[in-house]
Deep mutational scan, measured.
Amino acid sequence: ELREAFAKVDTDGNGYISFNELNDLFKAACLPLPGYRVREITENLMATGDLDQDGRISFDEFIKIFHGLKSTDVAKTFRKAINK
């Protein structure tokens, strides 16, 4: 299930999730959020999830993000976006 969610976000299939891919995910989900809020959520996920600070999120980092977000608003938003 997590591998499928990761693949859905990794639209270019390079094995990593970029800032733009995350941002595009939230935009495509048509969530009722202003653009600046989408950017804040994306920046927050990148800042906390990109553990090796290479500017992208690997599958291992994605798993840690996903499990670390349990019930936060960001987690709910992220799950809604993935499930669209």
Score class of each variant (00 low, 15 high):
13 G>N: 13
10 D>S: 01
76 K>H: 13
49 G>A: 08
23 N>M: 09
39 R>E: 11
31 L>H: 13
82 I>T: 11
37 R>L: 09
22 L>G: 00
57 I>D: 00
6 F>P: 00
26 F>I: 10
61 E>Q: 14
24 D>A: 10
76 K>E: 14
73 D>A: 10
79 R>H: 14
55 G>E: 08
61 E>P: 00
55 G>S: 07
41 I>N: 01
61 E>D: 13
66 F>K: 01
73 D>I: 11
74 V>F: 09
71 S>L: 08
74 V>L: 10
80 K>M: 07
20 N>D: 14
49 G>S: 08
3 R>F: 01
48 T>H: 09
60 D>Y: 04
22 L>F: 02
37 R>H: 13
14 N>I: 02
27 K>G: 03
56 R>C: 09
44 N>C: 08
65 I>E: 03
74 V>A: 13
44 N>V: 07
22 L>Q: 00
2 L>S: 02
47 A>F: 06
2 L>A: 01
62 F>W: 06
45 L>M: 10
64 K>E: 08
44 N>P: 03
11 T>Q: 08
52 D>R: 14
14 N>A: 05
28 A>H: 12
61 E>M: 10
48 T>A: 13
80 K>L: 08
32 P>Q: 10
71 S>H: 09
84 K>F: 14
77 T>C: 09
72 T>D: 10
69 L>S: 07
61 E>T: 11
27 K>H: 05
33 L>D: 12
15 G>P: 00
83 N>Q: 10
10 D>T: 02
31 L>E: 10
46 M>W: 07
10 D>Y: 00
56 R>V: 07
2 L>R: 04
7 A>T: 13
30 C>Y: 09
16 Y>L: 05
25 L>M: 05
23 N>S: 14
50 D>S: 12
73 D>S: 09
66 F>M: 13
18 S>V: 02
48 T>Y: 06
11 T>V: 13
12 D>N: 09
55 G>R: 07
30 C>G: 15
77 T>F: 13
70 K>T: 12
47 A>S: 11
5 A>Q: 01
41 I>R: 02
20 N>H: 11
70 K>G: 08
80 K>C: 12
51 L>M: 14
77 T>M: 07
27 K>C: 05
27 K>F: 03
14 N>R: 10
1 E>K: 06
53 Q>I: 08
52 D>Y: 08
4 E>H: 15
59 F>K: 02
51 L>A: 08
50 D>M: 05
54 D>R: 09
18 S>A: 09
34 P>V: 03
61 E>R: 04
1 E>P: 04
56 R>P: 03
78 F>Q: 15
84 K>P: 15
27 K>D: 07
73 D>E: 13
49 G>K: 13
45 L>W: 04
43 E>N: 14
14 N>M: 03
62 F>E: 00
19 F>P: 05
70 K>A: 07
51 L>E: 07
43 E>V: 02
70 K>C: 12
40 E>M: 04
51 L>F: 09
67 H>Y: 07
65 I>H: 04
66 F>Q: 02
27 K>E: 12
74 V>G: 14
35 G>N: 13
74 V>K: 14
65 I>C: 06
64 K>V: 02
28 A>Q: 11
28 A>I: 13
64 K>Q: 07
9 V>P: 00
31 L>P: 10
84 K>G: 15
12 D>K: 10
63 I>A: 14
65 I>P: 00
64 K>L: 03
42 T>A: 11
35 G>R: 11
84 K>L: 09
5 A>M: 14
64 K>H: 06
20 N>T: 13
66 F>I: 10
32 P>C: 04
10 D>L: 01
19 F>D: 02
37 R>G: 05
8 K>W: 01
42 T>F: 05
35 G>F: 07
11 T>N: 03
71 S>T: 10
21 E>W: 00
18 S>R: 09
56 R>H: 06
17 I>C: 03
23 N>V: 09
6 F>R: 00
34 P>E: 09
67 H>G: 08
59 F>M: 06
21 E>I: 01
28 A>S: 06
56 R>T: 06
2 L>P: 01
8 K>T: 07
34 P>H: 04
78 F>S: 15
80 K>R: 11
3 R>Q: 08
81 A>G: 14
65 I>R: 02
63 I>C: 15
24 D>I: 05
27 K>Q: 09
78 F>E: 15
25 L>T: 01
44 N>Q: 15
10 D>H: 01
32 P>R: 08
68 G>C: 13
13 G>R: 07
64 K>I: 03
73 D>K: 11
76 K>Y: 11
29 A>V: 15
12 D>R: 05
5 A>W: 02
81 A>Q: 12
56 R>M: 12
50 D>P: 05
25 L>G: 00
46 M>C: 09
69 L>C: 08
62 F>K: 00
60 D>W: 01
54 D>H: 12
84 K>A: 15
12 D>H: 10
4 E>W: 00
79 R>T: 14
16 Y>C: 02
48 T>W: 04
16 Y>D: 01
18 S>M: 11
